[in-house]
Amino acid sequence: MALLSKKDSRLILDPLADNNPITIQVLGICSALAITAELKASIVMALSVVFVLGLGNVVISLMRNIIPSKIRIIVQLVVVATLVIIVDQVLKAFAYELSKTLSVFIGLIITNCIIMGRFEAFALANGPWKSFLDGIGNSAGYGLILVIIGFFRELLGSGTLLGIKVLGDPIEKTGLYAIGYENNGFMLLSPMALIVVGIIIWVQRSRNKALIEEN
């Protein structure tokens, strides 16, 4: 971090924990829940958001003095939509199976509240370099939670990580399965994503009491 001043590195590090977009700011939940049944999909989604938010913040920040404030929402939506189309087309070309799994949720990055939230709260008021760092930081914080959820759901739900059978083979009864372990298929269903996020919030807030909300 010698490259960055102390203030700049805070822009990246804060959203990773104490100001995390998902667990503290409550932004961008939709996609976080729907695509995390597999670790691979979570990682790709996280990278897509890093790309879109990092670049989008720079573009908006460069244009911040020429956007009339009345139509800024539409300008922001157009910028995001363009970046998301790029991501979508790249995925369709190089990872077709994966883009089938992610289905409409790549498109839904457009309306991911993290993106609009950071544009409004940061990029419209700060220079391009700072906005870039802020974008990377926030999307990394988002990605971190996504990867944690994806890790637990795939491990407990299907006993694999990135498609590799880490717990042994459930059919041939090797590894953990030899002593009677069973996969919890329930983890793959959508409601468990919500409960996993709830548990992450619980753990985080019991470690840092300052984050506890009033009822």
């Binding site: 468990m192 994503a193 919500l194 919030i201 619980w202 019991s206 909300e213 009822n215």
Partner: peptide, 18 residues
């Protein structure tokens, strides 16, 4: 429980409703 107040419990209830 204090750390679950607000957001946390809302998530878990939504999960149960789902």
């Amino acid at each position: 429980p204090a750390p679950l107040r607000g957001l946390g419990i809302t998530f878990i209830i939504t999960g149960l409703m789902a």
